[in-house]
Amino acid sequence: MQNKLTVLLLILLACPAFSQVGGENVYQFLNLISSPRQAALGGKTITTYDYDVNQPLFNPASINEEMNGRLALNYSNYLGDVNYGTASYAYTHDKHVNTFHAGVTYINYGKFDGRNEFGDATGTFTGGEVALSLGYAYNVPWTNLYLGANAKFISSTLESYQSFGAAVDLGAIYVDDKNDINYGLVIRNFGTQITTYNGEKEKLPFEVIAGISQELENVPVRWHLTLENLQKWKVAFANPARSEQTIDGGVQEEKVGFLANAFRHVIFGVEVLPQKAINIRLSYNFRRAAELKILDQRTFSGISAGFGIRFNKFRFDYSYSRYTSASNTSQFGLMINL
């Protein structure tokens, strides 16, 4: 009973940190934002095809020779005392074999005070999760279509409970060089638990994402439009705080219409001066804004911004994401061209 209570406490504290659909799955940390650039563009951009060695963590089809020898390290002091980070590296063996990618995502939930069913202290415990990924992309001959895959190996420890799992990401990018438009499609976290926490197998946070981006002609701006959670149409929910009392004393729940639900799939971001040594990024995540909105308050939830600076072989990136008036996150990243 004691172990069940402490693990339940850990899960309840950790789940709100992720803006996911319903918190219905295990290994939710797999959908953590992979880098400051990704965060500043809304969190799930999949159409970037350039030097950014962080991008394959979300779309393996983006792996390319321009990433060769680049190492990226990212860190975020997340909500509460939760800390997480990612690392990525790409290596081109030769032009025939193309480029391989390796990545790590980890999260540390911090320390918790354990209590039994009587409220007595039982000591402290911790929780953490990590995923290792290996990725490869393939250019379909005589086309601008790129296909890629990541294999993920997952380890999770919550108090005295452990679980191991495996998953794959499948991605595609089509690069229209003539119009400078990229189209992307990703199937993420398709996998299973190999061992469970307590004998009950749970689903992974499977997700389908589509996107399009374009760098405008004669204007140094690239816009990104991302459609998230396409595997599930109804992602909106009725907020109890917006319910109304009826004449007969009943309660009328908030009605979420077609457009309100549709926009919750949308993320829009822009990157100014994307090819320069200094660039600026800004985005709006519609679902995050709707879910974290506080009634009668202007919190600017859903807005993220950031910048990148390149000097010699180093690139520094920073992002700031707005969640609520009391909870915001900053993410820091360093990329080195080895």
Rank of each mutant, 00 (worst) to 15 (best):
S62R: 10
N25K: 00
L71Q: 03
G69I: 11
K44N: 14
I63F: 07
L71M: 11
G80V: 12
E66N: 00
L73Y: 05
R37T: 10
Q38I: 07
S62K: 04
P60T: 01
S76E: 10
T92Q: 02
M67G: 06
A87K: 03
I63S: 05
N64L: 08
A87I: 05
P36T: 01
H93R: 06
R37V: 12
A40W: 03
S35D: 01
I63C: 09
Q28C: 04
D94F: 05
Y89V: 07
Y78L: 12
N83T: 15
L32H: 06
N98S: 15
S76G: 04
N98R: 15
T48E: 06
H96V: 15
S34W: 10
E66R: 08
P36N: 00
L30E: 05
A61Y: 13
T86Y: 09
A72S: 14
L30N: 01
L57D: 05
A72C: 13
N83L: 04
P36C: 06
Q55N: 02
Q28H: 14
E24D: 01
A90N: 10
H96F: 15
E65T: 14
K44L: 09
T86N: 11
Y51H: 10
Y27H: 07
I63K: 03
V82E: 00
D52V: 03
R37H: 04
Y91R: 01
T47Y: 02
R37S: 07
N25S: 10
N77M: 15
D94H: 03
N31A: 08
T92D: 06
L79M: 12
L73R: 02
T48D: 12
I63V: 13
Y75P: 08
V82S: 00
T47A: 06
Y91C: 00
F58N: 04
T92G: 01
M67Q: 14
T48F: 08
P56F: 11
N25M: 02
I46K: 10
N77Y: 15
N74G: 01
L32C: 05
